[in-house]
């Protein structure tokens, strides 16, 4: 074999060694389990919240329903807005509601999230009719969508929660 042939063979051999040896080494370390080697590994962060009613107050024509928001997950979430509707115990729509102000929820923290319900004359008369039916407390359900920001993404997700309002709360108004 001439010199050119020797050099060509040598470079080919070295190239093959450089390309193959790390992969063989890796397979050896992982017990030649090819499936495990090519399977992506990922454990997503836990995203979990607890929302519980914590208070009510009237201010002018608005009802402010406060919720205790506990972030049980590992991710910071900013609640930017709600596009929800309040429903009476008979399932009829009472009034539109929105988030009073954006709430930033850090992992492990508890924040107060305030829902602002616009209580017009129609909603008040509905409340009155529920009370006249003999109920002493009215269960109000809010359903709709929430706009939240997680890791720089805008997320629109369904939201549903409820609170109770009593005659005393309405009279305080």
């Amino acid at each position: 074999m001439n010199k050119i042939g020797v050099v060509r063979a040598l470079t080919l051999l070295l190239s093959a060694f450089a390309a193959v040896s790390p992969i063989i080494y890796g397979l050896g370390i992982h017990g030649w389990n090819i499936q495990a080697m090519v399977t992506p590994l990922y454990s997503p962060p836990k995203i979990d919240f607890r929302l519980e009613p914590s208070g009510l107050r009237f201010d002018g024509r608005y009802l402010y329903a406060e919720f205790k928001l506990t972030n049980l997950g590992e991710v910071k979430v900013v609640f930017e807005g709600f596009n929800v509707e309040a429903y009476g115990p008979d399932g009829k729509a009472l009034a539109p509601a929105a988030l009073d102000k954006p709430v930033t929820s850090q992992p492990g923290s508890t924040e107060i999230l305030t829902l602002k319900v616009e209580v017009g004359e129609a909603a008040l008369s509905r409340f009155a009719s529920y009370l006249m039916e003999g109920r002493d407390r009215i269960r109000v359900e809010v359903r709709g969508e929430s706009i939240i920001r997680v890791f720089g993404s805008k997320v629109t997700a369904p939201i549903s929660s409820s609170f109770e309002i009593s005659l005393a709360d309405i009279l305080k108004r």
């Binding site: 992969i23 890796g26 090519v38 399977t39 992506p40 590994l41 990922y42 997503p44």
Partner: peptide
């Protein structure tokens, strides 16, 4: 990285 957590494939460092 997805949602702040790494996605890894064991063979990639060797490739």
């Amino acid at each position: 990285q997805v949602l702040g957590k790494p996605v890894t494939v064991p063979i990639l460092p060797y490739l």
